[in-house]
Design a protein around this nucleic acid. Structure first.
Lengths: 224, 224
DNA sequence: TCCAAATCGATAAAAAAATATCGATACCGA
DNA sequence: TCGGTATCGATATTTTTTTATCGATTTGGA
C-alpha cells in the first residue's frame, strides 16, 4: 500500500497496472486519440472500468468528462510523474552473461526511467570490455563504483548458486533495492527493497491456465 | 482460482508461490534435510506460516506431523506433480534476438517442465542456423511446425510493434497459451491463456518500494 | 512413563482488492 | 433549445486473500 500526495491509498496491484496504462495511452496518443473513456481502456486492457477509474484517480487529478472521458496527454504526464519516469534512476548490473547482456541492451529501460551505469562480472574475458556501450568491471570494483556514483539499485543476473553472495555484496556496498533475476529467494536485511523476477511463477500460472483450457476443449476423453 | 482433485480451491497467488516452495525444498533436500515445518519455511521465505500450511495442503495430502513438520521428499513430489513438472510441455519461441536467445539457452526451463522445440524469426542471417542446439526457422514455417508437433505454448520475444501480428499468427496456428515478453497488451480471442512478463510493472513496484525506503532513511531533508 | 514444547489443521477474523450500484453531469444530435 | 445518453465519481457490496486464534496431537527428553 502506498499513499499519494492527497493521502489516498493505492494497492500494489494498482501500481503494477500503471505501466500498462501508460503504454496503452502512449499508443493511443500516437494514433491521434485525444480523449478516452475508462470504459474503452477497460475493454482493451481486459479490466473493469471502475477499477480503471480508481487507478487513474489515484495518480491523476485530471477530471474525466462525461461522454468524452479523460484527456490522454494529461493522463500520460501524470502517470509518468507518478512512476518517476521523468527523472532517471541509475543502477548497476551483476552478471554479464546472456540475460545480463540482454538487459544491458534493452532500450526500453530508458522509457521506464532506468539507466544501467555499469556491469560487474568475474569472467576475465569480459572485464574491461564494453557491452552495449556499458563498461564491465571486476566484481571487486563494485563497492567503490556504487558508493562513488551513489547508486541505489542493483540488478542480479547471476546463477542462483552465487546470487546470495552477490546480494550480500550489493547490500554491503549500500544498495537499497535489488531486482533479482536469479531463481532463488534472497535473504536480506530489513530496509532493502526486493523484486524477484520470477519466471517459474509466471510459467506455473500459464501452465495451469493452459491445462484448464485443454480440459475444457476436450472434456470427454475419459475412455480414450 | 483453480480446483484440485478434492475440489479444494486455490488462489492464483498460491499457484504463483508453489515454484518458490519447490526450489526451496529442493535446496533443503540437497542439504540433507528430511523434515521441515511450515514455521521454518515461512521464516526463510518471508511468508506467513498459516499461508504456507494452506498452500501445501492444497497440493499435497501429506500430513504434517507435530514437532517434525512435513516430509521434504513427499512435498517435492506432490508439488512437481501438481505443477506438471514431471511431463514436459513443448513450446515454440518467436523472435531469436537477444532475449529470445537467452531464453533458448536457459537450462532451468528443463526443471520447470518446459522445452523450447524451435524458434522462428524473420532475420535471414538466423534462419537455418541453430541457437543453443535449437533450430531457427523462417516465420512462415510456424503454422506447419506447430500443427505437426502439436505444440500448445508460444513464447513471444519480438519488438512490441510486431507482437500483435505474431500473436495472431500463433493463435491461427492453434496455439492455446502465450507467454508474452513484449511490453504490450495483446488482443486475443477467448480460450487462449496469456501471461505477460511485465518488466515495467516489476520495475514500478521496485521503484515505489525504493522511494519509500529512501524517504524513511532521510526524512528530514526539507531544507536541503 | 509422563510432561513440556512445537507444530498441525480447522475455523474465525481482518485486510485488501475487485466489482456493482446509482445519482449527477456534460456532451451530442435532433 | 432540449432530451437522451454515455460517462464520471462516490459509495456500497462482494469476493478474494491474508492473518490470527485455538484445541488436538505427536514427539523428545526428564
Amino acid at each position: 500500500m502506498v499513499e499519494n500526495d492527497q493521502g489516498v491509498v493505492a494497492s500494489k496491484a494498482t501500481i503494477a497496472r500503471l505501466p500498462g496504462y501508460l503504454g496503452y495511452l502512449r499508443d493511443k496518443q500516437a494514433e491521434g486519440v485525444e480523449n478516452i473513456s475508462s470504459t474503452a481502456i477497460a475493454e482493451d486492457l481486459r479490466l473493469n472500468a471502475v477499477q480503471v477509474r480508481k487507478d487513474l484517480a489515484f495518480v491523476s487529478s485530471v477530471a474525466g468528462r462525461p461522454k468524452l472521458g479523460f484527456a490522454v496527454s494529461d493522463l500520460i504526464l501524470d502517470i509518468e510523474r507518478f512512476l518517476g519516469y521523468d527523472n532517471v534512476t541509475d543502477a548497476v548490473l551483476v552478471g554479464a552473461g546472456g540475460l545480463g547482456r540482454t538487459l544491458m541492451g534493452y532500450e526500453g529501460f530508458k522509457t521506464y526511467g532506468l539507466n544501467i551505469e555499469a556491469a560487474f562480472d568475474v569472467d576475465s574475458d569480459l572485464i574491461g570490455r564494453r557491452v552495449h556501450g556499458k563498461p564491465v568491471f571486476a566484481l571487486e570494483k563494485l563497492p567503490g563504483v556504487v558508493k562513488r556514483l551513489n547508486i541505489h539499485i542493483g540488478i542480479i543476473t547471476v546463477p542462483k548458486q552465487v546470487a546470495q553472495s552477490v546480494a550480500d555484496l550489493l547490500v554491503g556496498a549500500g544498495i537499497k533495492a535489488i531486482w533479482n533475476f536469479a531463481p532463488t529467494h534472497l535473504q536480506l536485511p530489513e530496509g532493502i527493497a526486493v523484486k524477484n523476477e520470477d519466471m517459474a511463477a509466471s510459467l506455473a500460472l500459464l501452465s495451469k491456465k493452459l491445462s484448464e483450457i485443454l480440459k475444457a476443449d476436450a472434456p470427454h476423453q475419459k475412455g480414450a
